[in-house]
Design a protein around this nucleic acid. Structure first.
Lengths: 245, 245
DNA sequence: TTAACAGATTGATAATTCTCAATTATTTAT
DNA sequence: ATAAATAATTGAGAATTATCAATCTGTTAA
């Protein structure tokens, strides 16, 4: 996706102050003086699909701002199954728990080749101790995580499988321009929605047959937002059915 | 529960510095100088079961520290159904989103008569601007919300209804001393676990018959932790069944 | 190109949960 | 205390989803 596809290529970032997506990131509100408080330049880091940014339980030394790409946070249960508890995209921060001196709580795995800014925990803490400007953005980010988690809980884990999938696709299309969105593998979809791989597959296959989604590449689809909203509201195309629910 | 059961009785708090549960609350790390920055005394506020602390969309002027009791955060969906997205207890902060200038995101309803400290948003922000001591606790609290939400997502919304109920009971017993815990009404239980009221009732009724839980009052139960853990792990008491899953 | 492989799809059946309805506590109000 | 209202339980059948197994599809490796 990016011109430089060199995995894990460390690259000294040009000044944060000139960052193209600065308004979206944690450092949005920092002043020139704030940046002078940083001891080291911020590095940019690239990962390819399928690679792991960190593992659950790892001792954290940094948090990461997503510049581009998509990351999933995976939590394994005692029975060996796993759930995906969050999907992170441009502007999101990965590994926030590090600021609370916790080990990483999840596995962070790249879904779509991604580029990060690596922010050492020590630098963040020191910056926050010596300037009030970071706090507002940190607050906003924590808030976003929580409100996303609430959405997740209230929308993605209740209702029929069809409705959950529809909710997920709409959720995923929200950051992408227009109606295109990342289409997770069926196993991931199951882990996101608490349904089985087979059920996820059946629903997606049906959506494809009905033209609600069209693949443009294996993991990228164009969605018919209206049709999906109708699914969420319980409208079925079957004319004999009364619109219950 | 408390000696003074006067609902909504405002009471000027004795100094925060002498608060009996200070180590648990947001102000845990504040110094004498920090407290001097407060313009008004912090008020204590009591609510009875079933009362509403605030509604979704309300313009927030304060956040609340739970001194005692239990609160549910309720989110209504477009179809009229509702989900409970969080349960808050001693030491938790209700309405954190107010610090991000957001309107309240949920309805906050008292489950067990509760006592709060009311912390005006302006005071909190000013305190945080003028002292570094609040940040650590705020961080910890945001972190707790997020990690609770993750638990919720990964444990309380997947698996069979029986397993979800078992997880919930264990979750609820974690703060109470020993093995006693709050037992939600069946409708609330459904809204917590994404199952129907009837399913919740059947599971609880079965647990009661089998002696896994014993009621000590309508909403208070003693639980057999071991038996519940066995349920979570998929062990059934039926000897003819192979332990699958 | 072909074989091997992983992911996606589909089918058939079993298990679970939902839905709708009725009944039985339990609590509240009079 | 009695009636009315609310919450909990239970039953029966329908709907949904899980499970297990097989097939199909597209990709990678040789």
């Amino acid at each position: 996706m990016q011109p430089d596809q060199i995995d894990k290529a460390w690259r000294v970032a040009s000044k944060c102050e000139q960052c193209a997506i600065r308004s979206l990131v944690l450092f949005a509100d920092l002043t020139k003086e704030d940046f002078d408080l940083l001891h080291y330049p911020i590095h940019e880091l690239n990962f390819a699909t399928g690679e792991t940014l960190y593992n659950q339980g790892d001792k954290p030394e940094a948090i990461y701002t997503v510049r581009s790409g998509l990351v999933k946070l995976v939590s394994y249960l005692s029975d060996g199954s796993f759930r995906i508890v969050r999907i992170l995209r441009q502007g999101d921060v990965v590994g926030l728990e590090a600021l609370d001196n916790k080990n990483y709580l999840h596995h962070a795995v790249i879904l779509e080749s991604a580029s990060f800014c690596r922010l050492p925990v020590g630098e963040i803490k020191e910056l926050n101790d010596n300037s009030p400007h970071l706090f507002k953005q940190l607050t906003a980010r924590w808030q976003r995580v929580i409100s996303d988690a609430d959405t997740w809980l209230s929308k993605l884990t209740s209702g029929f499988a069809k409705q959950r999938v529809a909710h997920l696709l709409i959720y995923l299309s929200q950051d992408c321009q227009s109606t295109q969105c990342y289409l997770p593998g069926r196993e991931d979809m199951g882990a996101l929605l608490a349904i089985t791989t087979e059920t996820a597959s059946r629903v997606i296959a049906e959506f494809k047959r009905k033209g609600f989604i069209k693949l443009v590449s294996p993991h990228q689809a164009i969605i018919d937002q209206e049709a999906l909203v109708a699914i969420i509201q319980g409208d079925e195309e079957d004319p004999s059915a009364q619109n219950q629910r």
